[in-house]
Design a protein around this nucleic acid. Structure first.
Length: 460
RNA sequence: GCUCCCAUCGUCUAACGGUUAGGACGCGGCCCUCUCAAGGCCGUAAUACGGGUUCGAUUCCCGUUGGGAGCGCCA
């Protein structure tokens, strides 16, 4: 039977790095085994769930290319299903009404904690008169004795004492069902066979298993992923800078770089570092997932991004980069020229955004000249050199890299100076800075007209 | 505090009782060179600690320490 997996984010925030990895692992395994990947939006918390976040999560998934076969399902549309299941438990006596107020519970929790005990519900409403006309929530009657064991694919059997588990609330006073309940009902009715989720859910799993058991439903296969931590070893959060997947898109990261990075954070395939999407699908295997938490390392992501930028085919370069060029206010008039310019830049770009930041001189005439560069390289002596270069350039037609090289090396040999003595001032004059691709390449790309214009600007 | 999980270079990881403990990012050096990158070569750096088991432990067991997660009418 082909496996069915799901990703079930709650729309109380953007799709973040950790969630994206969970989604990726589920997606990868589904694709690897030719199973189904289902997307479900867990929005039973009406207070904090928003439409905006739902859209953002979907956009994040699409950007990463994690396509789903079924859904997105919304829990908000499934309330009748949950209600039916709750009624069943109530009828069977495996759930009961609890009339304790939130304030009472808070108070008891505090006193338990101050006594050094685990703050759990004492089960006092198990005996309460169920026909009282007071606001109530509904609790699941969990067993007091025995153990519940979680068969986890990467951790083995994890045993929990049932006495550690209290009667959890499955329906709020306002009539809406809660997470630990809906997740079970959904996974059962959606026939999910493998559950891959964050480590933070491991402690919830025994109570979910108890729910499966009382419904006599088959228990799925569990895989709990170690968490992704920040540099301070705390759970990755907004405090650690950009954590939203879409933020990486905006910073100029390629989805493949993020996918590759995320796959290797917690999973490995020997010494291999670079994986295409197809390779990941072919090679991904839950048995090679590690057990320990990993720290998010932006440098390595950057390295991967630079790697993938180098491999973008020339014909795709402009399309991918255009939004960043436009954002920087650069106008693209000649697409063929722009493509060549980007091509010359791509060896040294770390992000797509860097093209606009570091190569703006390709697309505008009124770029500023860096103060330090001007002082160091545009001196009376070098201006003399530039003037001579200009004079030798004028009769040149056509202008190409070989001819330029001839002129420049000829000049520097005559003067007995190093090539850099001419190349750097020239670079400052035509790019405004001391860093650029090969000077021959830049000059050729820019073309004679523009080069002369820029030389005149610094010579006048 | 209680419950659960985890522990190899700074970071991501390889090793599935026998290796000079390997690779990658980062960092440093050299080469290349018109600058900066890229690339090539070299280097830096780890089995948390203490007990067992074993001819032999990174690997198996126990403990200690350290880190993380959970303990919500959040998911």
């Amino acid at each position: 039977m082909s496996p069915r997996l799901r990703f079930a984010p709650s729309p109380t925030g953007h799709l973040h790095i950790g969630g994206a990895r969970t989604a990726l692992f589920n997606w990868l395994l589904a694709r690897h085994h030719k199973g189904q990947f289902i997307l479900r939006i867990e929005d039973t918390d009406r207070e904090r769930s928003t439409e905006e976040y739902t859209t953002s999560i979907l956009k994040g998934m699409e950007w990463l290319g994690l396509d789903w076969d079924e859904g997105p399902f919304h829990q908000a549309d499934r309330l009748d299903i949950y209600r039916g299941h709750i009624q069943k438990l109530l009828r069977e006596g495996t759930a009961y009404k609890c009339f304790c107020t939130k304030e009472e519970l808070d108070e008891r929790r505090l006193t338990a904690q101050s006594r050094g005990e685990k703050p759990k519900y004492d089960g006092r409403c198990r005996q309460a008169d169920q026909s009282q006309d007071k606001p109530y929530c509904i609790r699941f009657l969990s067993p007091d004795a025995g153990t519940t064991v979680v068969h986890d694919l990467i951790r083995g059997d994890v045993v929990f004492e049932n006495k550690e588990l209290d009667d959890l609330i499955i329906q709020r006073t306002d009539g809406t069902p809660t997470y630990n309940f809906t997740v079970v009902v959904d996974d059962v009715t959606m026939r999910i066979t493998k559950i891959i989720r964050g480590d933070d859910h491991l402690n919830n799993t025994p109570r979910q298993i108890q729910l499966y058991n009382t419904f006599h439903y088959p228990v799925p296969e569990w895989t709990h992923l170690p968490l992704i931590l920040g540099p301070d070893k705390k759970r990755l959060s907004k405090r650690h800078g950009a954590t939203s997947v879409l933020a990486y898109k905006e910073m100029g990261y390629l989805p493949q770089a993020l996918l590759n990075y995320l796959a290797r954070l917690g999973w490995s395939h020997g010494d291999q570092e670079i994986f295409s999407k197809e390779e990941l699908i072919a090679k991904f295997d839950a048995t090679n997932i590690g057990k320990s938490a990993g720290i998010f390392n932006p440098e390595k992501l950057s390295w991967l991004n630079a790697h993938y930028i180098k491999s973008v085919p020339p014909q795709d370069l402009l399309k991918k980069t255009l939004p960043f060029l436009q954002e920087a206010g650069l106008k693209i008039e000649d697409e063929a020229y722009a493509t060549q310019a980007l091509q010359s830049l791509k060896e040294r770009a770390t992000t797509l955004k860097a093209f606009a930041l570091e190569g703006s001189y390709y697309f505008q005439e009124d770029f500023p000249i860096e103060e330090g560069a001007r002082n160091k390289f545009l001196t009376p002596d070098t201006l003399k050199l530039l003037r001579e270069f200009r004079d030798r350039l004028i009769p040149l037609s056509p202008m190409n890299e070989i001819l330029l090289k001839d002129i420049m090396t000829g000049m520097t040999e005559e003067k007995g100076v190093k090539l850099g003595a001419l190349a750097q001032p020239l670079r400052v004059a035509v790019t405004g800075g001391t860093v650029s691709p090969s000077i021959y390449e830049v000059l050729t790309l820019l073309g004679k007209e523009r080069v002369l214009q820029r030389l005149d600007r610094v010579l006048s």
